[in-house]
Simulated assay, not measured.
Amino acid sequence: MSVEGSQLAEVLRAHGLRVTAQRQLVLDAVRDLGHATAERVHEAICGKVTGVNITTVYRTLDLLESLGLIAHTHLSHGAPVYHLAGNRGHVHLVCHRCGAVDEIDPEVFDGLRRSLEQQRGFLLDVGHVALFGICASCEKANL
């Protein structure tokens, strides 16, 4: 579910929570950045306003995730990255060289999903998957 503005207010109020500027700022930063660590979200907010500390960002990210507004994933051995939650999962394509993150539909795993179910009785859940490689831009730069 992608949530902005008045929709954020509705979700928060439905859970008995107040709408605060910090909550909106964190959600906006996650939306604008696409995939970002808590530290990167904090930097983006501090570029707009002062007085929002990193602890507030972490707490707000946890709250927004518990409400189903955002999700996190681990794209490497580092800190988790946050992005808007969607109705469907997606596959992250992460470039080893430049760190760019792209998304593709999990349907790319349909054949594997069917095969695992038929051969092993295993139901594959491709909610969030990270695949690592080299993006087209980096590959082209090395020619």
Score class of each variant (00 low, 15 high):
8 L>N: 08
9 A>V: 15
9 A>T: 15
10 E>T: 10
10 E>N: 02
11 V>R: 12
11 V>F: 11
12 L>W: 04
13 R>N: 11
14 A>G: 15
14 A>F: 02
14 A>E: 15
15 H>W: 12
17 L>M: 13
18 R>H: 11
18 R>A: 13
20 T>M: 13
20 T>A: 09
20 T>I: 14
21 A>Y: 14
21 A>D: 11
21 A>S: 13
22 Q>L: 14
23 R>F: 01
24 Q>N: 14
25 L>F: 09
27 L>N: 00
28 D>F: 06
28 D>L: 06
29 A>H: 03
30 V>M: 00
30 V>L: 08
33 L>F: 03
34 G>F: 09
34 G>S: 02
34 G>E: 10
35 H>A: 08
35 H>S: 04
37 T>N: 01
37 T>P: 02
38 A>T: 14
38 A>Y: 04
39 E>M: 04
39 E>N: 00
40 R>E: 12
40 R>Y: 12
40 R>N: 10
41 V>R: 05
41 V>D: 02
41 V>L: 03
42 H>M: 04
43 E>T: 09
43 E>Y: 09
44 A>K: 07
45 I>H: 01
45 I>Q: 05
47 G>L: 08
48 K>V: 12
49 V>D: 01
50 T>W: 05
51 G>D: 12
52 V>Y: 01
52 V>K: 09
53 N>C: 14
54 I>M: 05
54 I>T: 07
54 I>A: 09
56 T>H: 00
57 V>I: 08
57 V>E: 00
57 V>N: 00
57 V>Y: 01
61 L>H: 03
62 D>C: 00
64 L>M: 03
64 L>N: 10
67 L>S: 14
68 G>F: 11
68 G>C: 13
70 I>Y: 04
71 A>Y: 00
73 T>F: 14
74 H>Y: 12
74 H>F: 11
75 L>A: 13
81 V>R: 08
82 Y>N: 01
82 Y>R: 05
82 Y>S: 06
83 H>P: 07
84 L>I: 15
85 A>T: 02
87 N>V: 07
89 G>F: 15
89 G>M: 10
90 H>I: 04
93 L>A: 05
93 L>F: 03
94 V>T: 00
95 C>Q: 01
96 H>F: 01
96 H>S: 07
97 R>P: 08
100 A>W: 12
100 A>C: 06
100 A>E: 13
100 A>S: 11
100 A>G: 05
105 D>H: 06
105 D>Q: 14
106 P>W: 02
106 P>G: 10
108 V>T: 06
108 V>H: 14
109 F>Y: 12
110 D>Y: 01
110 D>H: 10
110 D>L: 09
111 G>C: 09
115 S>D: 14
117 E>K: 13
117 E>N: 03
118 Q>D: 07
120 R>K: 04
120 R>Y: 05
121 G>T: 14
122 F>N: 02
122 F>M: 10
123 L>A: 06
123 L>S: 14
124 L>K: 06
124 L>W: 10
126 V>S: 03
127 G>H: 00
127 G>Y: 04
127 G>D: 11
128 H>P: 02
129 V>Q: 15
129 V>R: 01
131 L>E: 09
134 I>D: 11
134 I>Y: 07
134 I>M: 05
135 C>A: 04
135 C>K: 12
138 C>G: 00
140 K>V: 14
141 A>W: 11
